[in-house]
Each structure stands twice: as structure tokens, then as C-alpha cells.
Write a protein that binds this DNA or RNA. Structure first.
Lengths: 137, 137
DNA sequence: TTTTAAATCGTAATCATTCTTATTTACAAA
DNA sequence: TTTGTAAATAAGAATGATTACGATTTAAAA
């Protein structure tokens, strides 16, 4: 998702566009990477001195709920990134640089067959390691 | 893993067997289910009034590190269960009763082929939903 | 039994996250 | 353009999970 689509999503749901919210989008639009709320907060402080943690948290979860961002729990802390793509996929996440690479493979069809009577509501599949760049560094 | 094996693992690594540690093992030996530290703490208090949170947490992570227990993050809280089995597998976890069912299917062979130059250190694959029992209830 | 390092207690600190109230702001309608 | 109003934000405190620490107790080896 790009910044323009994100703004449209926000307004379609009746939320207001603020300069803080727009700034957040530009932050996430830059990289294919998961960030913590704290990292975003640091970035926001440069432009909005004295910005509240609450504003960062609230908007992160708002964007997450709207599907503008996606999130995952890494090392006990929630991480966020721009929602990437329309087709279902998973991620390889580099333990060093944090960048994410799409994995276009999902075992859920087979799992559904195996589980039969179980009602499946969701699943999590993530692969962790070192990307080629971080291996050579 | 059963209680006897767990005790052997503990002693093999030079840790002492205490009545608290044994009690923890019996707690986890009972059910195929993930529990929080708080749930264990409640259980422990009945037998050891005034037991410290620290003792519960420390031992949970000790067992986790030793492979006696396995853990996963559910709803922002770490959950533990007895490490089950020798062969690699994953779990379906019921959102209602918390019980876990093994899934003997792992997509990592294929993922390794796809990822090529990426160094894979770990992966997480979990399926969530309602088990047959909780669906009818 | 004695010794001693490990384990535990009691409590406080830390960290991520959420909540509360007063103030400010976006934006729709006049 | 100005105004009214609901939404957004600031500031800081509350909450909940987890970890840390000095003092005390205990497991288990000698």
C-alpha cells in the first residue's frame, strides 16, 4: 500500500487526516521493514517535538486495524510495517536489519484438509534468519 | 516429555531439584495446553503460599531454555506447555480452551528451496481457531 | 553433619502498552 | 471565510507483564 491509498482508506472510514498521521505514513512508505513504536516515536519527535507516545500508539493501532499497516510480535515487542500487497503471503524477516522478504507459499490448504473438524480462524507463519546482505557484513 | 525425563534434563545440566520445580512439572504434565505464568502462579500458591513471582518466572524460562517446556506468545502474553515429542511439528491452538493439537506438516523444506541465499535460523508456524469440542459448546 | 553454591523470597524496577482529562485541531456547514 | 463540533492530541498517570536485586534459605556434595 502506498501513501495515497492509505489516506483514502483513512478518509473512507471517516477518520481525519492530520499532519502526524501523514508523517507516519511517509515513515513506513520508505522501507520494506518492520519497526517498533519506539522507533517511529524517535522519528516523529524530530518533526513534532513533544509529540505524545499515545499519539504514536493510537495511530499505529488505528492503521493496523484499517489494514494500512500489518504487525507482528518480535522479541516481545509489536512491530509494524506498511501492508504489502493484495495476495496472501508470508515473510522472511532478517534478524539483523529487520527487512522482510515475501514468501509466496502458504501451507494452509493442506492444513485445512488435515484438520477437518477444526474451525480455523487464523494462522501465523514467519521465517527468521539472515538476509544475504547481512550475511556478508 | 514426561516428569522423569524433565528431572533428568535438569540434573544433567547441574541444576538442583526443588519441590517447587517438581511441582511445576506436575502442573504441565497434566494437559496438552498452553498456560500463562499467572496461571501457574495461581496453581503454585495453593501448595506454596507466598511463593514469589520471581520463582515462577525464573523457572519457566529455565525450563524453556532447557527444552523441557516450549513457549509461544499469545495475545501479548507468553504461554508455556510441556515440550511434546521428538519429531518436528507445529500446533493448532484453540482460541477458547487453549488446547494444542499437533500438525505434522512443515513447509520449511520448500521455503528453503525458495529462499536460496537466505540463512534460515528459525521459523514460527501456528494455526488458531476453535477445536471441535469448543465449537459445539 | 558441614559446607557452599544455587534457589528462593520480598520487593522494587523496568518496559510496553493503555487510559484519562483538558486542550487543540480538522473539516463540514453556514 | 467563519464557526461549531466531533475527533485528535498532549501530558502524564495507571496497568500488566517481566526482570532485577540483596537477604535469606535450601539442596546436595564432601
Amino acid at each position: 500500500m502506498n501513501v495515497k491509498e492509505a489516506i483514502q482508506t483513512l478518509q473512507k472510514h471517516g477518520f481525519k487526516m492530520t499532519n502526524r498521521r501523514e508523517h507516519i505514513l511517509h515513515f513506513f512508505a520508505k522501507e520494506d521493514k518492520y519497526f517498533t513504536a519506539k522507533e517511529l516515536y524517535t522519528y516523529m519527535e524530530a518533526t513534532f517535538p513533544g509529540i505524545s507516545f499515545d499519539t504514536v500508539y493510537r495511530n499505529l493501532h488505528l492503521y493496523d486495524d484499517l489494514g494500512v499497516l500489518e504487525s507482528t510480535e518480535l522479541k516481545g515487542e509489536k512491530h509494524f510495517r506498511m501492508n504489502c500487497g493484495t495476495t496472501h503471503h508470508h515473510h522472511f524477516i532478517c534478524n539483523d536489519c529487520g527487512k522482510a522478504k515475501k514468501i509466496h507459499l502458504c501451507p494452509m490448504d493442506e492444513v485445512e484438509r488435515i484438520l477437518g473438524a477444526y474451525k480455523i480462524d487464523g494462522h501465523k507463519f514467519e521465517v527468521y534468519g539472515l538476509c544475504p546482505t547481512c550475511q556478508s557484513a
